[in-house]
């Protein structure tokens, strides 16, 4: 049974949950994810494992309320148990000492980039992190990110905190400052990752993005998660979730994420759906 040990609202609609899952915690590496179901009639949704506590046998997930399943999940309390959790799934992030690595997280994507930054730092990288959100109140994990970064830069779309603008502007500034960057890791809404890949492309800085297509089994069985990378179809659940951002067809990813928009809306009976990315 996967009991919820702790639930904290990081902002109005972003939640951090600690879930008991000893076997997953024991094996999990940065970049991997789980697929969970809230109840028997629920959907299977993938969520990145943000942290694990191998001693306590727990994993941490962070998610934004964007659809029916995440709404249901947010409604579950400490002591409740999830119907199912399977993982760790996907390839771990390729971690080595690249030199200087820039870790960029947008919105709830900060939760995904955080373990990557931590692992990079541990391996000896100089880690520059750039995190961003629409506005200050919904910026998450600032302290955690600071603790694993040599330098932390913050941007908000509305200028309520840090740099007034997008994380891509901040990255551009870092590049323009003449700093040598060996690798970029970027996780966030699809449009953000697309723009970041365009920023680094002229400088040939390898840019790894973490993709979040719709998944069902997440074991390579169904093909729901297919993405196009370098003109080849890949299964994000088993070949990914991380790919070279310069090779990813982001338009396709966007369209495929919108596949169930109407149905999701109907089911939610609300205006929000996950169709706009993460």
């Amino acid at each position: 049974m996967n009991e919820i040990i702790n639930r904290v609202f990081l902002s109005e609609n972003v939640i951090r949950m600690v879930v008991s899952a000893p076997e997953i915690a024991a094996k999990r590496k940065a970049g991997q994810f789980v697929v969970l179901m809230t109840d028997e009639k629920g959907e299977r949704i993938p969520l990145t494992i943000v942290e694990d506590d191998k001693k306590k046998g727990t994993i941490t997930i962070i998610f934004q309320i964007v659809g029916k399943t995440t709404t249901d999940l947010a409604g579950m309390k400490e002591g409740d148990s999830l119907f199912s959790v399977v993982g760790p799934l996907g390839h771990p992030t390729e971690i080595e000492n690249f030199g200087t690595s820039v870790c960029i997280g947008g919105g709830v994507g900060i939760g995904v980039v955080y373990p990557i930054a931590a692992a990079l730092r541990e391996t000896g990288n100089e880690v520059i992190s750039i995190i961003g959100a629409r506005t200050k109140d919904i910026l998450i994990l600032e302290e955690e990110m600071r603790s694993v970064s040599d330098e932390l830069l913050v941007a908000t779309d509305d200028g309520s905190y840090g740099y007034h603008g997008f994380v891509s502007d901040v990255l551009k500034n870092v590049i323009d400052s003449g700093k040598t960057i060996d690798r970029v890791f970027a996780v966030g809404p699809v449009p953000m990752m697309r723009v970041l890949a365009e920023v680094t492309r002229p400088f040939h800085i390898k840019t790894i993005v973490s993709l979040n297509p719709i998944m069902v089994d997440a074991t390579g069985m169904c093909g729901a998660c297919r993405v196009s990378v370098g003109g080849e179809t890949k299964l994000a659940c088993v070949d990914g979730p991380e790919f070279d951002g310069h090779e990813v067809d982001f338009d396709l990813l966007m369209t495929r994420l919108r596949m169930y928009c109407d149905q999701e809306k109907a089911a939610m009976d609300a205006s929000r759906c996950r169709c706009n990315g993460r």
């Binding site: 069902v216 093909g223 729901a224 179809t233 495929r256 919108r258 596949m259």
Partner: peptide
């Protein structure tokens, strides 16, 4: 083949 609305049988039946 990756257009929306195109399934593998595995996905559709699953």
């Amino acid at each position: 083949e990756n257009l929306s609305g195109i399934y593998s049988a595995n996905e559709y039946l699953t």
